[in-house]
């Protein structure tokens, strides 16, 4: 209980400071620290799998992205800041919004509205023997597929922003000393941990996104140290790595439509191997997509 109060207070204070500080780099670091504490908060909320996602994607690669952006963008104001009067109005509006959200959360009917029964009731209709697998494939399946496609779309959007004639992200500044050493030692360990997280995720939702984020981070680390080159945008192997997951997933979905009469439905007894068949390419695609998002758009070759 003290732990919760401490955590919540620290998160609030840090978040407030992040919003108010003028130094963009400092705000980025503040955001990462907030994310770290939020991961602990999710543990206290009883959801370790969300905590894993927050640690890997929210604070982890997301934080790195924002800190990088801060050094590139700086704190140039694009427009005039709101006048004191407007500012007061905005603050009042936001306070009202916070009070409304808080009231809504605190006056929830008990028990809170939930989908536990609906999820259970829908299971027999899926024609699957194993309810856990059914939830994973039917309730979470479409979600997961669309999530992977969103990552793919974001990569395409990023590439669309590249200037004419740009073929690959600009190489990082040259580094010597400890960084190349770290980039040689850490990735093998990171890959093992990533695979462990994906494997452990078979019992809970979403192991491949967290694992994919770690894989992406390890590859970006090697790139930062100058050990690997960013791939050409037109590289065919890269294209296949990006679409392999969604394609296999769609293929299995259509096969379910033909064989079991429902999109993404699986014939009983085949669920486990088919899920592994889907997860492996999906992890690869997600890792490749997240890594490319982290690198940013291609820049014109010098």
């Amino acid at each position: 209980m003290i732990l919760d109060a401490l955590l919540a207070l620290a998160i609030l204070a840090l978040a407030a400071w992040t919003v108010w500080t003028r130094d963009a780099f400092a705000a980025g670091i503040g955001f990462v620290a907030t994310g770290l504490l939020l991961a602990l908060a999710w543990v206290r909320l009883g959801s370790v799998d969300v905590a894993l996602t927050e640690a890997a994607i929210g604070a982890g690669i997301g934080g790195v992205l924002l800190v990088n952006a801060a050094t590139h963008l700086g704190t140039t104001a694009e427009e005039a800041p709101p006048s004191p009067r407007q500012n007061r109005l905005i603050a009042l509006l936001c306070a009202g919004f916070a009070v409304a959200v808080g009231t809504a959360l605190l006056t929830l009917p008990d028990p809170a509205p939930n989908l536990v029964h609906e999820a259970a009731a829908a299971l027999p209709a899926t024609g699957l023997g194993n309810p856990v697998t059914a939830v994973l494939m039917v309730w979470r399946g479409l979600d997961t597929l669309l999530e992977a496609i969103v990552v793919l779309l974001a990569v395409l959007g990023l590439w669309a922003l590249a200037p004419e004639g740009a073929t690959r992200p600009a190489p990082p500044p040259r580094e010597e000393g400890p960084l190349p050493l770290l980039a040689r030692v850490l990735p093998p360990i990171g890959v093992v941990i990533a695979l462990h997280i994906v494997w452990a995720g078979a019992d809970g939702p979403g192991g491949k996104f967290q694992g994919g984020a770690i894989l992406a981070a390890m590859w970006v680390l090697a790139w930062m140290a100058g050990l690997v080159r960013a791939p050409e945008v037109m590289d065919r192997r890269l294209a296949w790595a990006l679409v392999a997951g969604p394609l296999v997933f769609l293929g299995v979905g259509v096969a379910g439509l033909v064989l079991a009469g429902e999109f993404l439905a699986l014939p009983a007894g085949w669920a486990k191997p088919v899920i592994l068949l889907i997860e492996a390419p999906l992890t690869l695609s997600i890792a490749a997509g997240l890594a490319l998002l982290l690198l940013g758009p291609p820049e014109r070759a010098p």
Partner: peptide
């Protein structure tokens, strides 16, 4: 430890 050892000199 590995993180500390690399980040220190950097």
């Amino acid at each position: 430890l590995l993180a500390g050892a690399t980040i220190g000199p950097l």
